[in-house]
Write a protein that binds this DNA or RNA. Structure first.
Lengths: 98, 98
DNA sequence: CATTCATATGAAACACAATTCATATAATAA
DNA sequence: TTATTATATGAATTGTGTTTCATATGAATG
């Protein structure tokens, strides 16, 4: 497998903004604007991040009027999140992030 | 969950060097030096990366004489790799990485 | 078809992670 | 107890992803 697409996939889990977006969409679908509101972040910041998450199909989009509704690709993403959480809880309880 | 340790966990999958190390250790354990040799990379580069991978227990280490043998924490890491591969193969066949 | 609302986009600025290089430490053997 | 091999570490540099800001596009509505 080419490491690019692979690495790029994981990059999408490795900063706070994307983390917040993914977790916001874990139990509901939202428009770009509503995600920005809910996270109290600037519109274009959220938009840029949504583009990347969507490009590698971590998120799916659907146009609805003038809004764009984003939802999590639950099929593969939720299982990955769960495994990662399990690992982090078990091994990274205190300060693995230094 | 705190996003730090979480993000930090994923950061460790998102660059080529770490990708190469992880995949080299997928089927065998190696000393730091042998990893560097096998990947034809500079010693300290590999060492720095090994530190980070070990800190969040993606790798385990064991001292053996004056060598340090690194091995992959297969329990949680292999399943995550497999899910990621599945996703990438299915959704990122062409140029998700732009 | 002009206006408004929602979202996307490009480029510059910024932040942070990765690498490099020189050096230190740690374990062993002579 | 010095020399040698293996690995780690710190600081400066480099590289790359992220955010910001200004602006553009796109869909709907009067």
């Amino acid at each position: 497998m080419k490491h690019n697409s692979y690495n790029n996939f994981f990059v999408n889990f490795s900063n706070k903004t994307k983390f917040d977006i993914i977790h916001t969409l874990r139990d509901k679908s939202l428009s770009a604007g509503d995600i920005a509101k809910e996270l109290d972040e600037e519109q274009s910041k959220i938009s840029h991040n949504l583009q990347k998450l969507t490009k590698c199909h971590i998120l799916d989009v659907e146009q609805q009027g003038k809004q764009r509704i984003y939802c999590l690709n639950k099929e593969t993403i939720i299982p990955i999140l769960e495994l990662a959480e399990k690992h982090v809880k078990k091994y990274c309880v205190k300060r693995c992030d230094i």
